[in-house]
């Protein structure tokens, strides 16, 4: 057999494939959608950085042929914050899982949204802590079994789009790994959006979640995504909670405009800094306003 090349191999570290994810895991699909979205956006790829924390989804930073930052658990957003503030021209994408972003890094998530930092956060939600052995996490639905809730989970889960939208994000969407084309479009919109944009990607975890809940293989979950999804753009994210086996509300929930962290910072500091610097910043702000 001749050495065949996948058309996306130039965007991946193909020498590290096949990757570590289980058969049927959806993170590979989310990663493909991200690289496809970046390729179609046509941004210079040497100015794109993928930052991730710890977990299965966080492995993405090591598989894409982009600058990657595999950081400590839950701290992907703080690292990305520093990266973005020191290098404002970089496109910074945080790609991590629900446990990393919403539990250990939950505080960073809401505060980054509150500040409206110009970041794109992609959260792969597989309802469980996959890599550490299937413990329940902040997004595990009620009554779901896990290694640490053998009699069913009784903690109400986070509704991530509602959490992030309430904290002040300017772009909030939710898709599943079955809705690939919409996911690519959502990633493009989120990356192009100025401010804190958040995309939740629902994904099957065949080993940690499905097997323990006797929900079959990953294929069953994909069929469920196909059958039970309801696309409601502009819906109130508070009504988009996830129940086990229930309807999944997908779509673009929030797409608004708010001044970003850097815009506010520069405007505020320009009032107090010494005149020559303030003058320069004022000119920059005016030039930007003329452009837009």
């Amino acid at each position: 057999m001749t050495e065949a090349q996948h058309p996306l191999d130039h965007l991946l570290r193909a020498d590290r494939l096949p990757h570590i994810w289980c058969p049927g895991c959806g993170i590979g699909i989310a990663m493909r959608c991200l690289v496809l979205a970046l390729e179609e956006l046509g941004r210079p790829l040497d100015r794109v950085v993928v930052v991730s924390g710890i977990g299965c989804s966080a492995r993405v930073a090591g598989y894409v042929r982009l600058d990657g930052f595999h950081t400590t658990h839950g701290r992907a957003i703080p690292f990305a914050t520093g990266l973005k503030l020191a290098n404002p021209d970089l496109t910074v994408i945080v790609f991590s899982g629900d446990g990393d972003l919403a539990a250990i890094g939950g505080n960073h998530l809401i505060h980054a949204a509150r500040r409206n930092l110009d970041l794109t956060v992609i959260c792969v939600n597989n309802f469980i802590y996959g890599m550490t052995g299937g413990q329940f996490g902040p997004t595990t639905p009620l009554a779901a079994r896990s290694t640490t809730t053998p009699y069913g989970n009784f903690e109400p889960p986070f509704n991530l789009p509602a959490l992030v939208a309430a904290s002040g994000a300017v772009y909030v969407a939710r898709w599943t790994v079955f809705h690939v084309r919409r996911l690519i479009a959502a990633f493009q919109e989120a990356i192009a959006k100025k401010g804190f944009s958040f995309v939740e990607v629902l994904s099957p975890c065949p080993t940690g979640y499905l097997r323990r809940n006797k929900l079959g293989e990953a294929l069953e979950m994909m069929r469920y995504f196909k059958a039970q999804s309801e696309i409601r753009h502009g819906a109130d994210p508070a009504e988009a909670g996830i129940e086990m086996g229930g309807k999944l509300i997908l779509g673009k929930f929030v797409d608004i405009e708010r001044p970003t962290y850097q815009e506010r910072m520069r405007k505020q500091l320009a009032m107090f800094f010494i005149e020559p610097y303030a003058e320069k910043v004022r000119e920059e702000i005016e030039a930007e306003e003329v452009e837009s």
Binding site: H6, P7, L8, D9, L12, A14, L17, P18, H19, W21, G24, C25, G26, I27, G28, I29, R32, C33, V177, F178, V180, R181
Partner: peptide
């Protein structure tokens, strides 16, 4: 390209 888009392993195109 549905198979290509849905393959988590980059194994089909």
């Amino acid at each position: 390209k549905m198979c290509e888009l849905l393959c988590p392993e980059f194994a089909i195109y």
